[in-house]
Amino acid sequence: MRIINIRLGRPAVVTLALLPFIAALIVYAVASDIRLTANPADRLLPAPGTVLTTAGQLLSEPDRRSGDILFWQDTWASLQRLLLGVGISATIGLIFGLLIGLIPVARALLAQFVAVVSMIPPLALLPILFIVFGLGELSKVVLIVIGTLPFLIRDLSQRVLEVPQELVVKAQTLGASTWVIAIRVVLPQMMPRLIQAVRLSLGPAWLFLIAAEAIAADAGLGYRIFLVRRYLAMDVILTYVIWITLLAFVMDWGLRTLSRKAFPWAEAGL
């Protein structure tokens, strides 16, 4: 039997899916053990148990100076920036994607400009953003917007162009104006695609968030990681990295579920 035709049952699929995770854990545990046997004071690869203990402390013990639990404070600060940035980006991206995709005049005016602007490396603009918007929240949110917006606009305008021309013509024969075509025909069909595009831009969004926080912030997940790096506190860094991964994964999963629940027609038809 050909390998491409081998199908697995549910238990086998779950086992196989878990295998790489377990393998990674084992590799880490062994490597950590080897280093710790050689030098019990080694800080580079703390034992899994140590990481767990640190994680427990981070999640529950308040900061001695301020009395807040820094872990949750960092999480809240970062999530706020991320959601604000991605939300603004998605809204503007949707509006401009519709304009460029649906209206030839807007396309002639903006498509090339967006294509050129999307080539600017957003991180190269970060110093400018810090100078213009200061070191506060605004510059971080703007970096996320600048980093994800061009992709969203280009992706969504392309998706609008992919809406079958027949549907647009049909709507016109039913007497629909440009506005009605935009809000009743194209916009609803864009929503599942918007969610898909947002899912894809969450990765870059986290990247820009952590980059901005690493350089100038007083709270945030990225800020904390780069702060404790100075003390080689690998147990703290690992806890934060795992937490960020988990948050990103849950967001992605949530958006996918939302798309499936809210747009049943897209699953069946497209």
Partner: peptide, 17 residues
């Protein structure tokens, strides 16, 4: 295209959403 002419295509003639 306008209200005085109705059209039915081979495909994509109804709104999927």
């Amino acid at each position: 295209p306008g209200l005085d002419r109705g059209i039915v295509f081979q495909r994509y003639s109804v709104f999927p959403h």
